[in-house]
């Protein structure tokens, strides 16, 4: 992966200005994009086509076409059970669709396992934070680095082969910890962190891999208001570094505040796309959130359907158990 990565991505400081210009350009490019589901983007980093995932008889995801613009922050929103997390799992290789094609930087991902997707530069976080509880914070960070010589079995026993690289990684990890205000916790077990700190650690750890596309699954869930602002800042800074961000979120303030583009899913389909202020007032979106039957009482059928969808959502969150 790192070969294709722009060398300027790693640090915010000196190279921020051209990166910021680039992302401003990218946002400007979105101005001409139609506000329709499946709209073509001028410079897509992810293209998904005809993705369908069924659990038993229930279709959790049915996305006809979706493109994610490079270098901007795209929000993926939708009511509970809309299939957002399942879609995330499908894109990152943690689950397999029944049919469909999707690509990252023009490379097809149909048969690429999750770990290789991550190595290609598409790193995700999880809705239920997955920190490595009984490793220290700094060790959590070190695991995030890619292409470590010491991770090969043959070289692992000979420390001189990997010590130099390990030191470089540690320097980088310390910088990220500093930036994410976790430096004081460096030697603590990750399991002792608060929910918000775990979110920060997970995001910082994802950055150890220098990803081009950062996929955040509900980064604000369970984070206290004081931390929210700094998290928002961090997400924005990712864009300033030239990275692309795709995130799932329920917090509409956050969506309005930081996203350049919003994709709305409901019942597995993409129902609307557009800049935040336009999308929020779209009738299809209001229908999706309140239900198109929001003027009727819930019949038993509908209720059952909702329950079934909730179940599918739960299933989708445990993709590993499904294999």
């Amino acid at each position: 992966m790192p070969a294709e990565t722009e060398p300027t991505l790693t640090k915010g400081g000196g190279t921020a200005a051209p990166a910021a210009t680039r992302s401003a350009e990218a946002r400007a490019a979105l101005a001409g994009v139609e506000h329709e589901p499946g709209a073509k983007k001028p410079d897509p980093i992810v293209v998904a086509h005809g993705i369908r995932r069924q659990f038993g008889g229930l279709t959790a995801v049915d996305v006809e076409h979706l493109e994610i613009q490079k270098g901007v922050i795209t929000a993926l929103i939708g009511p509970n059970g809309a299939g957002k997390t399942t879609f995330f799992n499908l894109l990152t290789g943690f689950d397999r669709p029944n049919e469909g094609t999707w690509s990252f930087k023009g490379q097809a991902l149909d048969k690429v396992p999750a770990y290789k997707v991550a190595r290609m530069g598409m790193v995700r976080t999880f809705q239920l934070t997955k920190v490595l509880s009984r490793l220290t914070v700094i060790e959590n960070m070190r695991v995030g680095a890619t292409d470590q010589r010491g991770e090969g079995l043959l070289s692992a026993m000979f420390a001189w082969l990997w010590r130099g690289q390990e030191q470089d990684n540690t320097v980088k990890a310390d910088e990220l910890l500093e930036r994410f205000l976790l430096h004081k916790k460096r030697e603590d077990f990750a399991g002792s962190l608060s929910g918000g700190q775990r979110k920060l650690l997970e995001m910082a750890r994802a950055l150890m891999a220098d990803p081009e596309l950062v996929m955040l699954d509900e980064p604000m869930a369970g984070v206290n208001p004081a931390l929210k602002q700094s998290l928002l800042g961090h997400v924005k800074s990712l864009r300033e570094e030239g990275r692309t961000v795709l995130f799932v979120e329920h917090d509409m303030d956050m969506v309005r505040d930081i996203s350049d583009w919003v994709v709305v899913m409901a019942q597995g389909k993409v129902v609307a796309e557009g800049p935040p202020h336009t999308v929020m007032s779209d009738q299809r979106v209001i229908d999706a959130y309140l239900g198109s039957h929001h003027d009727q009482d819930l019949s038993e059928d509908v209720e059952e359907q909702i329950l079934a969808e909730a179940q599918a959502e739960i299933d989708a969150e445990h993709p590993e158990e499904t294999k």
């Binding site: 038993g56 299933d315 158990e321 294999k323």
Partner: peptide, 12 residues
Amino acid sequence: PQGLLGRAQRVG
């Protein structure tokens, strides 16, 4: 792996 009558979605 889910067994003859197990559901494909979730083992257990």
